[in-house]
Amino acid sequence: MKSTAGTIIAVVVAVIVAAIIVNVIFSVMWFVAKIVVIAIVALIVYGVMRSVFGKSEG
């Protein structure tokens, strides 16, 4: 009976640890995705601003 209880506890702990790891991985992936989108938008805005101000300065 002791072996069965130990197995159940090990499974519960493994599931909890796996859930935490997956949560951290998805948080990091979401952060990286946001940084990439911000960089792309910043480049687009920079290009637009450069073309607008570049033409006005002549």
Rank of each mutant, 00 (worst) to 15 (best):
V22Q: 08
I40W: 00
V12E: 14
V22I: 12
Y46F: 12
M1H: 06
I8M: 06
V28Y: 02
M1N: 06
Y46C: 12
I40Y: 00
A19K: 04
N23C: 03
N23F: 12
M49S: 15
K2C: 00
V12W: 10
N23D: 07
A5Q: 11
I21Q: 02
A33D: 14
V13I: 08
R50C: 03
A18H: 00
G47M: 05
V45E: 10
K55Y: 12
N23P: 01
V12I: 13
A14N: 07
V28R: 05
I8S: 03
R50D: 13
M1D: 02
I8W: 07
S3W: 05
F53G: 14
W30F: 05
G58S: 13
L43D: 15
V12N: 06
A18S: 05
N23E: 13
A10G: 15
I40A: 00
L43E: 14
K55N: 03
N23A: 09
V45I: 06
T4D: 14
I38D: 15
A39R: 08
V15W: 12
S27W: 02
F26Y: 09
S56R: 15
A19E: 10
K2E: 05
V24H: 01
A19C: 03
M29F: 12
V22L: 06
A33I: 11
V52G: 06
V15M: 13
S56N: 13
V28T: 04
V11R: 15
V13G: 00
I25R: 02
V32I: 13
A39M: 08
L43W: 13
V11T: 09
I35P: 00
V45H: 02
V28Q: 04
M1R: 11
M49L: 15
V17G: 00
V24C: 00
V22S: 06
F53P: 11
S3C: 04
E57A: 05
V28A: 04
V22D: 02
V52R: 09
A39Y: 08
I35N: 10
Y46A: 14
S27T: 08
I16K: 03
A33M: 11
A10W: 05
V32K: 05
M29W: 04
V48N: 08
V13N: 01
I44G: 00
F53Q: 15
V11C: 07
V15L: 15
A19G: 08
A18W: 03
G54A: 01
M49Q: 14
V22K: 07
V17N: 02
I8P: 00
A10Q: 11
I35C: 01
R50M: 10
Y46S: 13
A42P: 04
S51R: 15
I44Y: 02
I21G: 00
S56A: 14
S56Q: 15
M49H: 12
A10F: 07
S51L: 15
I35D: 06
V37R: 01
T4N: 15
V28H: 04
A33F: 12
V24A: 06
I16D: 10
I21L: 13
